[in-house]
Design a protein around this nucleic acid. Structure first.
Lengths: 144, 144
DNA sequence: CCGAATCCGTACTGATACTG
DNA sequence: CAGTATCAGTACGGATTCGG
């Protein structure tokens, strides 16, 4: 166990770096991408589009739980960041296709790495949570 | 009930899987970890603790923007998942230390990889967004 | 068919005050 | 010092409706 300095007022970085090269700037970087894909639907849409271009109504069908509102908003945000491309065909029944871009695929890969991590540690996390809940009261008006 | 799609002829999975090994299950995995660290403070606290154990008040000082409430809540959530460990020293001025666990460090590394990605593509993303905003109206009471 | 606009409930977040 | 409790503002997300 490490003895932390008692005078760590504002200086957190005074502690030795055992293995981490952490700077607060890193947090900002992470937050930026988290703000982009940390929402409920972005990753899901990106993943759905990874298999190939889809139309608006196809996306609705492919992700039944999403509302039209959120689909539109999320799509627009992804398009704005350059993760998907929107192609509108000027035809009589309008047809709009959404395609994932290189950047979007790149992002998806990076995020999928998190999925890999999740796969490996998911069981442990759930176990921890269960053990924690067993001691600390979930306390949700439980009656039995 | 909404009858938006009386057309059952739509074929969702019609798109072939050219290169992506994507399953909807992946999304769940990603969402799980995103639910854990996708919030505003988890990553920041994890990163702050990466340099060594800190006390409650040290964390408040190290992350001035956080409120006591959010610190407590986030800490508890991280503890529940097993990312940090809480050590209460039964002394007269109470002293409680929070330490990042192996699991937490592991998670932080995985998330930091996202930070790396962000570093590399941040400029491009910002450029895309700016270009998008130039065409599509931000329209927020622009003039002055 | 694609999407924008509106209404509304809920969850998250922060400020403040209080306790052991 | 280390939390807990309560209240209020805001942002998020969903259902629905209307327009091009």
């Amino acid at each position: 166990m490490r003895t932390v300095g008692t005078d760590v007022r504002l200086r957190v970085a005074q502690a030795p770096e055992p293995c981490a090269h952490w700077a607060n700037r890193d947090a900002d970087l992470v937050r930026e991408v988290l703000d982009l894909v940390g929402d409920k639907w972005s990753v899901l849409l990106l993943g759905t589009l990874a298999s190939g271009p889809l139309r608006y109504s196809d996306l609705i069908a492919a992700v039944p739980a999403i509302s039209q509102r959120m689909l539109t908003l999320t799509l627009k945000q992804l398009q704005r960041a350059g993760f998907v491309e929107r192609t509108s065909h000027p035809e009589v029944p309008p047809r709009v296709e959404y395609t994932i871009t290189e950047l979007g695929s790149s992002l998806l890969s990076a995020v999928l790495a998190l999925g890999t991590w999740s796969t490996e540690h998911q069981a442990q996390i759930r176990g921890n949570q269960a053990a924690f809940d067993a001691v600390e009261p979930p306390e949700a008006g439980k009656a039995e």
